[in-house]
Amino acid sequence: MNNSLIVKVVSQKMVPFIIMLGASIILHGAATPGGGFQGGVVIGAAYILFALGIDAKTARLRLPVIKVKIVESAGVLIYAFTGLGGILLGSNFLANKIVLFPPQGEPGGLFGGGTLIPITIGVGIHVACTVASLYYAFVEYEGEPKPDKETE
């Protein structure tokens, strides 16, 4: 990439605002357009912008591959345990109105989704880490990986 100072500074300063936009899309996913996938893609694109602004090694140090894998699996586990909570409370998988933990607001509000809110958060975390993994897989691929350097 080009070593422009404007590109470097702007890409670093814009990252927290893009992450806040993605978190807003995720948290309002049950009530407004958007949801886990869209907000997760926005957060992953923020990471790609961050990694393109500085060099690849610093970005990889800031967010290692093993951390990406752990958080990605945590997103799936949030989804799964939210679904299993419905079974534990005596109803179907992913049952919504019987689970008491998420606050049940009025429909159309921010908390009107019930269990849709942790599901959307889990999907958002998973998709954000998947987009970051896509960046690792496609962009930063430099030949065959060395087995002694990356212990996974």
Partner: peptide
């Protein structure tokens, strides 16, 4: 609205970045 947001995030954002990276 959902499809529009997905297209704006994926098509105009991530796909363009991946294309430019592959081009570079």
């Amino acid at each position: 609205n959902d499809v529009a947001m997905t297209e704006a995030a994926v098509g105009a954002g991530v796909t363009t970045i991946l294309f430019i990276a592959a081009f570079c």
